[in-house]
């Protein structure tokens, strides 16, 4: 229990310190433009990693479609922001509302997918989340949505049937996605979202809900037999995780001028999963660090130019082998024993 608390303060301190340092660097102009442009995506990926960690690390169910919730939030949040262009002139407020809407729709999607998910286990559950991500991508790739003074008009497959009144505009144009987005996402908004996410997740983990969720992860049958309502707690974790992903999606989308459904495909889901696993399952601080490093890494490898993705792949394999292979594990344990003496005991 004690260890968890210190971990919590480390997470908050880390995020706040990083924010403060970045703000100082930005105001003194010591930061490159490309680095500055990465701050919002990094924030979004941190939230994505934390929220997926809730599903994979804390609930213990493998999800391969987390980008689907991000997509849901990105599209609904951005559309909402575009519809509020005139009614809410304050960009900060508009971004806030759009993130809330993204979170709501993400949560709804999470609830819908949660219904089949709750019946399945392990790899079957994973494949359903994968399928769900692909369905979302496929639908947004073919959805045409227009908006005028009479409200929303939508149609699948083509925009032919949509006739807009004067002053109306197309919001989603099929595979072209949403274009002419106002870039209203800021690093400060990202920072607030991260802090909020951390607050929610830590609050959840330390509450009765969190203990029930972790009990389900560790032994579902035992948890059920002491009266834990498995369905309810699984669903709670799943919906919260999806809602946070939705908010992150809304933040992420409004950092670009165009966004397409293909940006949130299977590879994005996998990328987020990689962040979670490298950071450590159930370890929130780890997720934050790995999300930051792994978003910067491809940028930092730019000098390798064509080889950078290859290097990335090799780094990924080597890290997994180094941290998980039985031979290296024994070596690390020995090293720990020699260096720290009874450090292991202290941690517990």
């Amino acid at each position: 229990m004690k260890r968890k608390n210190t971990n919590k303060y480390v997470s908050f301190a880390l995020v706040i310190a990083a924010y403060a340092i970045m703000m100082v660097l930005i105001s003194t102009g010591k930061i490159t433009r490309s680095m500055q442009g990465m701050l919002v995506p990094i924030s979004a990926y941190i939230v994505m990693a934390i929220s997926l960690n809730l599903t994979v690390g804390i609930l213990g169910e493998l999800s391969l479609g987390h980008a689907g919730f991000m997509s849901m939030g990105a599209f609904t949040g951005t559309c909402a922001a575009l519809m509020m262009l005139e009614s809410v002139p304050n960009t900060g407020l508009r971004l806030g509302i759009s993130m809330v809407i993204g979170a709501i729709f993400g949560g709804i999607a999470g609830f819908l997918i949660g219904i089949p998910v709750l019946r399945l286990k392990g790899d079957y559950l994973a494949i359903v989340t994968l399928a769900f991500g692909e369905i979302i991508k496929s639908i947004f790739n073919n959805l045409y949505l227009g908006f005028d003074k009479y409200g929303l008009h939508f149609q699948l497959l083509s925009e032919k049937g949509i006739k807009l009144e004067e002053g109306g505009r197309m919001l989603i144009q099929g595979a072209m996605g949403i274009s002419k987005i106002k870039k209203i996402s800021t690093f400060t908004a990202g920072f607030i979202l991260i802090i909020l996410t951390l607050f929610i997740v830590y609050h959840l983990v330390e509450s009765r809900y969190g203990r029930a969720i972790m009990a389900i992860r560790d032994n579902r049958i035992a948890a059920e037999s002491v009266g834990v309502d498995v369905t309810k707690y699984k669903m709670t974790a799943f919906v919260i995780s999806a809602a946070m992903a939705g908010a992150a999606g809304a933040l992420f989308a409004q950092n670009y001028s165009t966004i397409t459904a293909n940006k949130f495909d299977f590879n994005t889901s996998i990328l987020i999963l990689v962040l979670v696993v490298l950071g450590g399952l159930g370890n929130i601080t780890g997720s934050i660090i790995s999300a930051t490093l792994l978003t910067i890494l491809p940028e930092a490898l730019r000098s390798f130019a064509t080889y950078r993705m290859l290097v990335y792949a090799i780094v990924l394999i080597v890290v997994m082998l180094a941290t998980n292979a039985s031979s290296t594990k024994i070596m690390i344990d020995r090293l720990k024993a020699r260096l720290g003496g009874n450090k292991e005991e202290e941690e517990r």
């Binding site: 994979v56 996998i270 999963l273 990689v274 696993v277 990924l316 997994m320 998980n324 039985s326 290296t328």
Partner: peptide, 17 residues
């Protein structure tokens, strides 16, 4: 080398490959 490792670690390695 990952025969004894948790399945997620193997999954990520497969993705790396």
């Amino acid at each position: 080398p990952l025969r004894q490792a948790p399945s997620l670690a193997v999954l990520i390695t497969a993705i790396g490959v």
